[in-house]
Every structure is written in structure tokens, then in C-alpha cells.
Write a protein that binds this DNA or RNA. Structure first.
Lengths: 236, 236
DNA sequence: TGATCTTTTGTACGATAGTACAAATCACAT
DNA sequence: ATGTGATTTGTACTATCGTACAAAAGATCA
């Protein structure tokens, strides 16, 4: 049942299993889960459809394994960066460091695969949009702890902002992050070719700058939101 | 070929066609395009699968009609609100009015259907995540003009910020907006039940407040981004 | 009422989906 | 070299997909 480690275990593994995982990740991230067939994946990986069944049992199992593969490393990286960020003295600098600790691992390689970070984050974005069941379970289990840790850290560096507002702004951050990875070409189009939406470094700097400012915005006045103005101000 | 208008044309239409559109909108918006079958839609609408083919010819045609139904009203509403916002004197107030003009129609009813605005926006979010072909074409045709108009308006109220940065921040805004509609329950969860992520009015106020601050952030210094620091600051 | 058009129903067809499984092949310790 | 377990291949099965289409039902007006 369990594969016995051979002498060359840690060395070269021209493994079909890896190729299938990589192909599935790429296809799921760009087309969604349901639009991609097991045969598509096998073909992209240069494998036989039966191979997918052999290694991952079901299509859901394949998705599950993709998550398992990335969640650990990415959250570990985030924890490290968050711990370092918490030690920054200046509150303004600390906030930026915290945001960076959240954003950077999402764009950069979270595992040994090149570009794995961005691809996996994009995959998560697409799965959450599709309301994928498998993904929903894993995310609630794996990411909520991390999210709470970041929210707490941000709250510490912005004590005068209610936690509620910080939750909203963190949510907006994740949405912006996801969308930047899902449709980078839209940025290129709207800027009339002046910027490349696929440039991870550029996207990170812009996202960090904008998000830090958003976090620092004054909180919504509770009294004001109680006597909140109607959603539509004029009646057409 | 063209349906002849009857005497009661503008009055009651207990039309199957409408029921199918509504059901499809709801199902597509929550499960994605590919996860929903024509039979699912027909069943949810209390119709026969053949009825869908009759009214919309293909599944793509059904999606197309959903877009056609909403794009006009929503962009019209946005144009009206944008025009009004442009007339606001105070630059700070004007920026907020512009952002509100962009956000509000996405949350509130863009057509005669109750909750149609939010549902359609969520649909767009899901379609863009799935990379849906039909949606991509319509969006580039229909929404880019509106987006440019908003970007221009924002740029006018923030003349010292490069257009490039405004494009990025508008993109982040749309991502945050989309994500708020896709997974409102995440906000409830992360706030430990303190806020209701499905409360449109609350979401709008939070989004407007955060986004205005993000737009007002100082621009990225061009020189600094040329000698940009590496993506990962420490090497582990 | 009967003729004509629109809408709905029921059913069927070919394509493709996920998955199962036996046979073939490979890797490697002995 | 040979046997053994891991992997890959090829193929087949059943279910469901989008769509087509003929027949039934409903509506409209002479």
C-alpha cells in the first residue's frame, strides 16, 4: 500500500503523478473544476486517463491532493513572515509588513513548483467562485486560522479600528488579491497597455500600497451606520 | 419570426421564459456555468427541458440573454449616478460619490427583478473566474466603456495620482466587490457572527469607506518601483 | 368552429463524462 | 535472470450532458 522509499527517493522522479498534479492545477485554475475533464488533464500531462484514477482515485481526490500539497508550505511561509512582521516596532511599518506577509506568499512559489503560489491562489479563487464543495471544506479548516491570526495582528497595529471593520477590509484584500490573479489581462487592457497585470512584483506593490491605506481609513461611525442613508440616494 | 405584440403585451405575463431566466441566473451565480445542466434549470423553473431550447436555442444563448437583460439598465443607472457625482464640488466628497455610483448599482436591483443587481453581479464574478467565453466577450464590449468612464472621473478628482495606479485600485475595487458577493458567509464567519456579510447596505458602506482611502493613498514612486526590492525580503 | 401560430411536452440521439478493471509494462531486489 | 509489486495502458460501462424534433396543448382571430 505505502510506497517503499527507494535509494533514489529524494532525487529525480520523472513521475507521472507530479505531471498530472501540475496539469490539473493549471487547467482547474484557468477553466474551473467542472469545465475540465479527467481526460483533458491526462492528455495535458501526457498520461493515460486510467493513471489519474490510479493515483487519485477520483477527480475530487485529485483536487484534494492539490490543496494538500500547497496549504502546508503556504501557511508555514505566511506564519514565518507574520511572526517577523509582528516584531516591527513602528506601527505604520508593521502594518505594511503584515499585509506583505499575507500577500507575498499568495503570489510567489509556495512549494517547489515554479509559479506555484500564484497558480494555487488563482485555483482557490476559482474554486471559491464556483462554490466547490471539496474546496469549501478544506478552506474553512485550513485558512480560517491563518486569517484570524492576520486579523488579530492587524488589529493590534490599528487598535482604534473595530475588529468588524478589519474583517471587512481583510475580506476586500483577499477579493482584490484573487481578482488580480484571475483576470490580470483586464489591468493591461484598462491601462491601455501601460502596465502588465501579470507582473507579480508590480501587482504586489500596488496591492500593498492600496490595502494599507484602506486599513488605515477611519472606521465607520457606528451611530452613522445606524441612521444609515438609504442605499440609493436619488430615485431615478 | 418576430412575435407580434398582443393587447396585453405590457401587462401580466406568467411567462415560462421569465421563470427560466430567473432560475438560470440563480443557479449559474451560485454554482457556475458548467456545474448547472439545462435540466437543472428547467426543473428549478418548473419547466420542461425542451422549453429552454425553444426560448434560448442553446445554453450559451440563455447566458447571453441574462447578460442582455441586465447590462443596459445597470450601466444606465451607473451613468446617471456618475454624472451626478461629477457635479459634486468638494473633491473628497466627489470621489466618494463616484465610488458609490460604481458600487451601488452592483448591489441593488439593476432591473425589475428583486435582488437582481447583486445576483447578476455575482453571476459576473463567477463567470469571470471560470473564464467563460460568452461572458468575456460581452464584458469587454459592454463594461470597458463604463470602467474607463469611472477611471477618468476618479483621475479627475485625484489629479496627482498616475492613471496607472488608479487602474490598479479600480481593479482591486471590483475584486473586493465581486468577492463580497461570492462569499458573504466568510465575513460572518471571520467576524464570529458579529456582522452579516449578506447585508448589502453594510457591505456598501464598508467597501466605499475602504476604497476611497485606497484611492487616496500616495502613488507608488516610479523610481522606487524601478529599483524595486525583491518580492521576498528574507531568504528561507 | 376551424385555421394558424405560439408554446409546451415527451422522447430520443450522439457525445462525453467519471470511473472501474484486466492486461501489459516497468523497476528492482534477490 | 526471474519474480514481485508498482505503475501504465486500453477499453468498457453507465450516467448524464446539450440539443433536436415531432406531437400535444394553448392561444388568437376569421
Amino acid at each position: 500500500m505505502v510506497r517503499k522509499p527507494t535509494s533514489k527517493e529524494t532525487a529525480r522522479k520523472p513521475n507521472m503523478r507530479e505531471a498530472i498534479l501540475a496539469a490539473a492545477e493549471e487547467l482547474f485554475a484557468t477553466n474551473g473544476f467542472n469545465a475540465v475533464s479527467v481526460r483533458d488533464i491526462a492528455h495535458a500531462a501526457g498520461a493515460n486517463p486510467g493513471s489519474v484514477t490510479y493515483h487519485f482515485k477520483t477527480k475530487d481526490g485529485l483536487l484534494l491532493e492539490i490543496y494538500r500539497r500547497h496549504c502546508g508550505p503556504m501557511n508555514l511561509r505566511r506564519s514565518e513572515l507574520l511572526a517577523a512582521a509582528r516584531r516591527v516596532r513602528d506601527l505604520q511599518d508593521r502594518l505594511e509588513a503584515i499585509v506583505r506577509a499575507y500577500v507575498v506568499p499568495a503570489f510567489t512559489s509556495g512549494s517547489d513548483l515554479a509559479g506555484g503560489g500564484a497558480r494555487f491562489t488563482r485555483l482557490r479563487a476559482v474554486m471559491s467562485a464556483e462554490g466547490n464543495e471539496v474546496a469549501r471544506k478544506i478552506i474553512a479548516q485550513t485558512f480560517d486560522d491563518t486569517s484570524h491570526a492576520f486579523i488579530d495582528a492587524i488589529h493590534e497595529s490599528l487598535p482604534h479600528i473595530p475588529r468588524t471593520d478589519i474583517v471587512w477590509r481583510s475580506h476586500f484584500l483577499l477579493g482584490a488579491l484573487y481578482y488580480s490573479l484571475v483576470t490580470p489581462e483586464r489591468v493591461s487592457r484598462l491601462s491601455r497597455g501601460e502596465v502588465d497585470g501579470s507582473d507579480a512584483a508590480g501587482a504586489i506593490e500596488q496591492l500593498v500600497r492600496a490595502t494599507v491605506a484602506a486599513f488605515q481609513a477611519p472606521a465607520l461611525d457606528q451611530a452613522a451606520s445606524a441612521r444609515r442613508r438609504p442605499v440609493v440616494s436619488s430615485k431615478t
